[in-house]
Computed example of a mutant assay.
Amino acid sequence: MRLLFSIGAVLVSGVLAGGDVASIAAPGPKSGPSKFESSRQRQAADGDAQSVDVELILAVDVSYSMDMDELAIQREGYAQAIQSKEFLQALKAGPAGRIAVTYFEWAASNDQKIIIPWRLIDGPETADAVAAEIMKTPIRRASRTSISGAIGFAMPLFDEDPYHGLRRVIDISGDGPNNNGGPVTLARDAALEKGIVINGLPIMVKEPSYSTMDIDNLDYYYEDCVIGGPGSFVIAIKGREKFKEAIRTKLLMEVAGRTPDRPVVHVADKDKEPRVSCTIGEKIWSDRWGR
């Protein structure tokens, strides 16, 4: 049984307050640490100069269904969250007191662009530098939505960075289901096999319409088809005014590496039928355009 937690106004690590949080998936029973976990824990324990609390990949949707205003608010949300007092407090509370971050934008299965290569954030100065890099890059838009392509692009990035984190996390934000590239569940499962956690930020600020690939219950789709791994969670953005708050809450949780204690919602096991079809995006695209 996979558990999801609704945190509402629950405080996370003493620094999270509010946020339009949908749910958090609790880790299932474990027989012991994986080889990957043991290896990275040893690296951190050895006092490696490049050890960090988490290697975090921010994978941001720039498909045409996102309007320019949303893209601008999204950029500002990440920049402001990284510079926030709460984020820096959570950063210092970790064992290493620092994290590694890379930020890329994605659309179709062959369209990913790294905006910020791996950067170390260990205090206000490095946080300000990363935020400035995010804001100075021109905003772009592109066609199609391939969450599977974003996950597939992200996985090798962990092998290329010089840092050793106790956790490896891919953070996917987007406003629609996968409609291009391979099945999203296969990409998700490949990442989970490598010990990678996937979190989700479904953007649900517009009513679904025929002219876009928006669907009802995108948060359910992310919960059942996209996220996974111990402590994985979804934070749904259901209003433009919630963008920045939700992004800040999400980053705080990822840095803190903690989840609320009290399970309040039980969701079907992973092997059971998802509440929203994991191929709904591909079906909508095929029904409309026949390819």
Rank of each mutant, 00 (worst) to 15 (best):
S6M: 00
L11A: 12
S13D: 15
G14T: 03
A22I: 06
I24T: 07
A26L: 03
P29R: 11
K30Q: 14
E37T: 13
Q43F: 09
A44P: 14
A45L: 14
V52N: 12
V60S: 10
V62P: 01
E70I: 05
E70K: 09
L71M: 02
A72D: 06
A72G: 01
R75W: 01
E76P: 03
Q83N: 11
Q89A: 13
L91Y: 11
L91K: 07
P95L: 02
G97V: 08
A100D: 04
F104A: 08
A107H: 05
A108Y: 00
D111C: 07
K113V: 14
W118N: 13
I121Y: 06
D122S: 07
V130L: 15
M135D: 12
K136L: 05
S143W: 09
R144P: 04
T145R: 09
I147H: 04
A150F: 01
I151T: 04
I151S: 01
G152M: 00
G152N: 01
G152W: 00
F153I: 03
P156Q: 01
P156T: 06
F158Q: 09
D161M: 15
R168L: 03
I170S: 06
I170E: 07
S173T: 07
G174S: 12
G176I: 11
N178M: 10
V184W: 04
V184P: 07
A187K: 02
D189A: 11
G195T: 13
G195P: 13
G195M: 14
V197A: 13
V197R: 15
M204W: 08
E207Q: 11
S209N: 13
S209R: 14
D219N: 05
G229K: 05
F233C: 02
I235Q: 10
A236N: 10
E245D: 06
K250N: 05
E254M: 12
R258G: 10
R262S: 12
P263S: 04
V265F: 03
V265H: 07
V267I: 15
E273F: 06
C278T: 13
I280E: 07
G281M: 09
S286P: 06
R288I: 06
G290Q: 07
R291M: 13
R291E: 15
